[in-house]
Amino acid sequence: MKAGVLALQGAFREHREMLAALGVAVTEIRTPDQLGDVDALVIPGGESTTMAHLLESSALREPLSAAIADGLPVLGTCAGLIVLAREVLDGRPDQEPLGAIDITARRNAYGRQRQSFEADLTIEGLTAPAFRGVFIRAPAIERVGDAVEVLAEHNGRPVLAREARVWVTTFHPELARDSRVHKRFLEEVA
């Protein structure tokens, strides 16, 4: 299996290292031709408005959208979740999400950096210990469609959800030094 990590901006290196530690061949994606030969994709955390610009200027938006529609498995964390959502609240007007998963996401839902936090999460399908969720200026999932399955919540809000082969987290599994979310994603979509 070959996994790609969208490397336009953000914490792509942490994802690459985590996937590599799981024994997966990893490649960084910055141009459309690099997208062709990957079996799964991670869209990392970072600044979602920056990524939205760079998806356009790098001519990646259309091919990426088409590949996901064709069944490319994708894991989006934080900003990656915002890129993949059906609808985004508190975004920029020109920030058109890909609509790959039927959720409504609110940007910076917890506030500014001073409100960023970490907390233990219970994730469906993972055994103890708890998964340490790191939330950095995190978005919230405010609505999930009927086809969306919620795999973890924090204080009543969904923080890990999936619809078919599209997985999203509002937290940063790549910062937790715990590869169980990546492992489970790869196992289920492979």
């Binding site: 001073r114 960023s116 233990d120 939330f135 973890a152």
Partner: peptide
């Protein structure tokens, strides 16, 4: 669906 046990959120850690 998972009932989401929650720990008390910790702010301002080095990791955050």
């Amino acid at each position: 669906m998972n009932q989401g046990q929650s720990s008390y959120p910790e702010v301002g850690t080095a990791r955050v």
